[in-house]
Write a protein that binds this DNA or RNA. Structure first.
Length: 285
DNA sequence: AAAGATGCCAACCGCAATTCC
DNA sequence: GGGAATTGCGGTTGGCATCTT
């Protein structure tokens, strides 16, 4: 037997709220507060609504400090970065956007941002966040079948190294290897000056897969706050990759296409291959 | 002008977490 | 400690508005 419903559905009104109901709820909450009990509130206020419905209406619509619509570019960037880092934790994401509700952020993501991002995936050439083409942003890859599951990664001491395996071999990753943000069609770009994440303890917040064609790796020094550096690498539909980083109030996004040309260059493209060789991991790749 | 498709968003649903007794 | 009640959250849906054919 399941749990009892929160209210008698036969005797409560459902569907859109009328202005009169809004007035009653607003007046009651402003005068008396919720009393810490939403379930009892509609009865006290004289509303024929479920307590959950009242709570939702207040939190998402009637609260006086709510801003609807008109998301700014900065808000877009924050949502995208956080989504890449922590996934669909809308309440957490909304907490970084003053006066926004989780429902609003969720709706905005589902109706606008998701499409905006998938539109970018159709780009024929990579570009940086200024919209300029980046000549070294094509990554060659072929004969690679992404595995259906990736082991959960918890904590690392220094950076991460990750690769995408063939159908027959597992994804490999290891600790203690810094990697470079530079990528190049011809292989590893030797640029020790450009390393990300920066040296130092890092917490890997997410390492997840959605289906078997979309992967992301995120690392962050302080997952629940934007006060520190965070970054994420995402592969979308195996043809589009994006690198998103946030550091000191500045969001930077890079994106590029994957060209299925020759095997495993994705690794070298991210500066992984040589280090994997050195670490004796090449067979796993 | 009408019909169908698509976009948008408020609201609902069900489950997990938390609090209360 | 355990069960019930309540809250919080994310996924999904329903219906209206707008766009396209």
């Amino acid at each position: 037997m399941g749990r009892a419903p929160c209210c008698d559905k036969a005797n409560v009104k459902r569907g859109p709220w009328s202005p009169e109901e809004d007035d009653i709820l607003r007046a009651f909450v402003e005068a008396q507060g919720t009393g810490g009990n939403w379930i009892a509130l509609p009865r006290k206020a004289g509303l024929k609504r479920c307590g959950k419905s009242c709570r939702l209406r207040w939190l998402n619509y009637l609260r006086p400090d709510i801003k609807h619509g008109g998301f700014t570019e900065d808000e877009d960037n924050i949502i995208i970065t956080l989504y890449n880092n922590i996934g669909s934790r809308w309440s957490v994401i909304a907490s970084h956007l003053p006066r926004r509700t989780d429902n609003d952020v969720k709706n905005y993501w589902n109706t606008k941002l998701k499409k905006k991002l998938s539109g970018k995936a159709d780009l024929k050439k990579g570009s940086n966040n200024n919209g300029n083409a980046t000549s070294n942003s094509i990554i060659h890859l072929s004969s690679v079948q992404f595995p259906g599951s990736i082991p959960k990664v918890e904590d690392y001491d220094y950076g991460i190294s990750a690769g995408f395996g063939t159908d027959a071999s597992p994804v490999s990753y290891q600790t203690g290897v810094s990697y470079q943000q530079d990528f190049h069609s011809q292989g590893l770009v030797s640029n020790p000056a450009v390393q990300f994440p920066p040296p130092g303890p890092m917490e890997v917040s997410e390492f997840n897969t959605s289906g078997n064609t979309s992967y992301s790796i995120s690392s962050s020094q302080e997952v629940s706050s934007l006060s520190a550096a965070s970054s994420s690498l995402a592969l979308d539909n195996t043809t589009h990759a994006s690198w998103s980083s946030y550091n000191g109030g500045r969001v930077q996004d890079d994106e590029f296409l994957i060209d299925f040309g020759s095997p495993y260059e994705l690794l070298s493209g991210f500066g992984f291959q040589e280090q994997a060789h050195e670490a004796g991991l090449v067979n796993q790749i």
